[in-house]
């Protein structure tokens, strides 16, 4: 495997990810236009904006599914090692740089059990323990021990998300809210430094939404993992994020604390530009979150 270049620039110690001049063009369409922002260690950073603002495209660039047309994505990884994400291949972003993600339309392995889903997420260390399969087939090496440890870790996560009783059920059989949480647990099983969540609260009822907030807070607090999330649900954004980046038509229009962003006239205009009712709904939600 080719070792990626280590000439990543040094970031300030408290900065985990620095996105600089990110631009993504699809043919003639510029989906993301010169966007720069930082993700601080241990922060929950929210990426918001009207539909079609380019949020998911930014996400796909950060997690390696798209190669940006222009731009630099520097991640200050575990052990102070710097990575240039745009130079890594998609699976290396998770394995080497420690960026994990979930998907807008849940992408669990539906025909595999909840437990198996969490074990696939520990593929890289288990693969090493099985001696790249050769030793594992012969039953040699420390594979059994490694697998037992992996199962323990999966169990711990299943307990944390309250799904331990459904460990042996196929993921596709779980209710929607449980699937969302399982997907987050699966991403966390890769031992990431940055967790990227694409609309984690979409389609959740208020109770599930509350559970999700608690889970995200505990991930930040107990695991020390920074979270970058896309969200439409303003109550979630205002309640849990430390830092908000607002995109509109592919450009960054605001960047700051939830409070600052909320009062930014550009943001209000962007949302006003969509539909009056929507703006009112957003305002109500923000007020509700504040109260």
């Amino acid at each position: 495997m080719t070792t990626p270049p280590a000439d990543a620039p040094k970031l300030p110690d408290d900065t985990l990810l620095r996105v600089e001049h990110l631009t993504m063009r699809f043919g003639g369409l510029t989906a993301v236009d010169d966007v720069s922002f930082d993700v601080k260690r241990g922060d929950i950073t929210a990426l918001i904006g009207p539909n079609g603002a380019g949020k998911t495209t930014v996400f796909n660039c950060v997690t390696g599914f798209y190669k940006p047309t222009v731009g630099r994505l520097t991640l200050n990884g575990a052990g102070g090692r710097g990575w240039l994400l745009e130079r890594l291949r998609d699976h290396q972003i998770s394995r080497l740089a420690g960026v994990a993600r979930t998907f807008q339309n849940i992408r669990l392995f539906g025909g595999m059990t909840a437990l198996e889903n969490l074990l696939v997420a520990q593929h890289a260390p288990l693969m090493k323990a099985s001696g790249m399969t050769v030793l594992g087939v012969l039953g040699l090496g420390g594979f059994n021990k490694a697998e037992a440890a992996a199962i323990e870790k999966a169990k711990a996560w299943l307990e944390r998300i309250g799904l331990i009783d459904r460990a042996d059920d196929p993921a596709a059989d779980l209710p929607y809210g449980d699937q969302r949480r399982l997907e987050i647990a699966r991403a966390m099983c890769t031992d990431p430094v940055l967790l990227c969540l694409d609309e984690p609260a979409a389609g959740l009822n208020p109770r599930e939404s509350g559970d999700l907030n608690a889970l995200l807070r505990s991930i930040r607090k107990e695991d020390g993992v920074a979270v970058l999330l896309i969200e439409h649900d303003m109550s979630v954004v205002m309640e849990i994020s430390d830092h908000v980046v607002v995109l509109d038509y592919g450009k960054k229009i605001s960047d700051g604390t939830p409070q600052a962003v909320r009062e930014d006239p550009k943001v209000i205009a962007a949302y006003l530009g969509v539909e009056d009712e929507e703006v009112e709904a957003v305002e109500r939600e923000i007020e509700g979150a504040q109260a």
Partner: peptide, 30 residues
């Protein structure tokens, strides 16, 4: 061998690949 492989990470990765290739890549599976 096939039964054994199924229980190894490579076998699970094959099945995960069959289920969802994009999710596989996001989990660091080559």
């Amino acid at each position: 061998f096939v039964i054994r492989l199924r229980r190894l990470p490579i076998g699970r990765a094959w099945e995960a690949l069959r289920e969802d290739e994009i999710a596989c890549r996001s989990l660091g599976v080559n």
